[in-house]
Simulated assay, not measured.
Amino acid sequence: MKPPRCVRHIRIESGALTLDFQGSAEHIGCVAVELAATTIDDLIVTVDDNVGPDLPALPCAALWA
């Protein structure tokens, strides 16, 4: 039996742009690390467990594995 999949929420904010996605903890963690390494001054990345059914999936999540 597979262990339960941990799903996380990521919010990416830069200026007037706000993006919210859900994805596996592994994928969300990889995206957060990559974004933290950028030099975009006003970039804010928040990761939490506020996942709802209307939250879209992280696009191209397999690229972040």
Rank of each mutant, 00 (worst) to 15 (best):
M1W: 05
M1C: 07
K2I: 10
P3F: 06
P3Y: 08
P4H: 07
P4F: 05
P4M: 07
R5G: 11
R5L: 15
C6G: 10
V7A: 12
V7K: 08
R8L: 15
R8Q: 13
R8S: 15
H9W: 08
H9F: 08
I10F: 05
I10R: 11
R11M: 02
I12C: 00
I12Y: 00
E13P: 06
E13M: 15
G15T: 13
G15F: 07
G15L: 13
G15D: 04
A16Q: 09
L17G: 04
L17C: 11
L17D: 03
L19W: 02
L19Q: 10
L19C: 14
D20V: 01
D20F: 00
Q22V: 11
Q22M: 12
Q22E: 08
G23H: 07
A25W: 03
E26W: 06
I28K: 12
G29M: 11
C30N: 14
V31K: 02
V31W: 01
A32R: 06
A32K: 03
A32D: 00
A32I: 03
V33S: 05
E34T: 07
A36W: 02
A37G: 08
T38R: 12
T38W: 02
T39G: 13
T39N: 12
I40P: 02
I40T: 10
D41F: 07
D41W: 04
D42L: 12
D42W: 03
L43W: 00
I44R: 12
V45E: 01
V45D: 00
T46G: 05
D48Q: 08
D48I: 10
D49T: 12
N50L: 14
N50G: 10
V51L: 11
G52W: 09
G52K: 12
G52I: 10
P53Q: 14
P53W: 09
P53H: 11
P53E: 14
P56G: 07
P56K: 07
A57N: 13
A57W: 09
L58E: 00
L58T: 01
L58W: 01
P59C: 02
A61S: 10
A62H: 04
L63V: 05
L63K: 10
W64H: 10
W64N: 05
A65T: 05
A65Q: 05
A65R: 09
A65D: 05
